[in-house]
Nucleic acid binder design. Sequence first.
DNA 1: GCTCGATTAAAACAGGCGTTTGAATTTGTC
DNA 2: GACAAATTCAAACGCCTGTTTTAATCGAGC
Lengths: 244, 244
Amino acid sequence: MASSTVQRLARTPEGTGERTVEPIDTKSRILDAAEELFMEHGFEATSLRLITTAAAVNLAAVNYHFGSKEELFQAVLTRRLDPMNQDRMRLLSIYESEAGVTPLTCEKIISAMFIPALKLARDHETGGKNFLRLLGRAYADPAPFIREFLSSQYAEMIVRFRAAFTHALPHIPREELSWRLHFVMGALSYTLAGTDALKMIAQFQPGETENDEKVLRRLAPFLAAGLRSPVDTASDAHQWFTET
Amino acid sequence: MASSTVQRLARTPEGTGERTVEPIDTKSRILDAAEELFMEHGFEATSLRLITTAAAVNLAAVNYHFGSKEELFQAVLTRRLDPMNQDRMRLLSIYESEAGVTPLTCEKIISAMFIPALKLARDHETGGKNFLRLLGRAYADPAPFIREFLSSQYAEMIVRFRAAFTHALPHIPREELSWRLHFVMGALSYTLAGTDALKMIAQFQPGETENDEKVLRRLAPFLAAGLRSPVDTASDAHQWFTET
DNA sequence: GCTCGATTAAAACAGGCGTTTGAATTTGTC
DNA sequence: GACAAATTCAAACGCCTGTTTTAATCGAGC
């Protein structure tokens, strides 16, 4: 098995050093190519031959280094997802200790969720934006191995943030809060999944520099307002769904 | 080509009539089987052999009746999506004429979007719930032919509802409103896509009778609050995304 | 009863898939 | 330089894919 290979960095032809132009390590080359191609075509539609050709490595290298196509996909996800979720929890802990005994605001908690995602979106060198789109699409993938993998990856983080929101919004029943968290995750993943999905909204003309960062700045207040909204009582329900 | 075949209905063995047990028409059998299998495994992972076996028809029947696998997928979507979007626009028109010159409330407009979806979710006979999940997953599918098809299917409806929201929320800039509509569609599709995705949220125990209808009743107020939330000014932005 | 178009049927097509094999090559260590 | 482990490589494996082909069957209309 591949294990302790020293990762060396390719240097620019001019020898400026420091900047990684293209990873020389076979494993990294595969991960980078797979990340982009999985994002572009989805898991099933992306063949190992496409990946290995793009990565300029031998076809058998995937099975040698990762075991299988499924394990490669999980490796692609976990490479960035795990650090991002660690960042989120670390940030939340910092905010909590800063606040002391007073409960955090909704905005603070959402910030702890969004800032690490933003950091990835800003990261132009590594394919951070590619990854966020890939992640958004993985959320909606029906494949059981993907769903189970994501569940395990998110379990710890969800518990932490659920607890934080419970303190921040004590008047929201816990079941209602579960659903609202679900909606938050939904809007977030859908937004990250594809900027091109926006073309679906006719007559949409995004500003010239409309990047992922600005989108998240719009999304956060939207979600915070939803989280804080008064709980719909049974007597209010009829106003929503009465047929004419 | 298949065209003017009279669609006959299979009757229950007891001869009670009226209720369709299983469609006798080959085209319908294929559509029903494909709807369920595409929902379960996604487009790429669902083979024509799987579909035709489940539908108990010959393998070549798909290409004969629909032309190709892609066209079958579009037929599966359009069979229910087109009527649903027509319903939405019709309902919106009714609300508008009822309100006269006064602009509609956010809640009313959202109702016009949700009620037709609810009608499908309630429809246990036809696989309405299956379809909604399939639709939610199609939103996130990277395949170009799916994205283009959905764009064309939604174009008219989006224009109508954008206009309605513009009147209901005159204080929201049009670009901001485009994004908020995007978030609404995201949360909606993600919610419809999979109840099983909820298992990702640890410790989540849905109520016994937690059906799609109740979920949408929770989602609608959440989204309305987001739509109405005050627009974030530049001076407010720092509160969200300042690193510690 | 026969004919003709529509539909179904079985079989084959060419090609792509993920994975495995076994030998060649590179790499690290004494 | 020699040994052993790690890695790369070309080739093949068996299987499955969407689609096409060709013949058989069906169902009216004359």
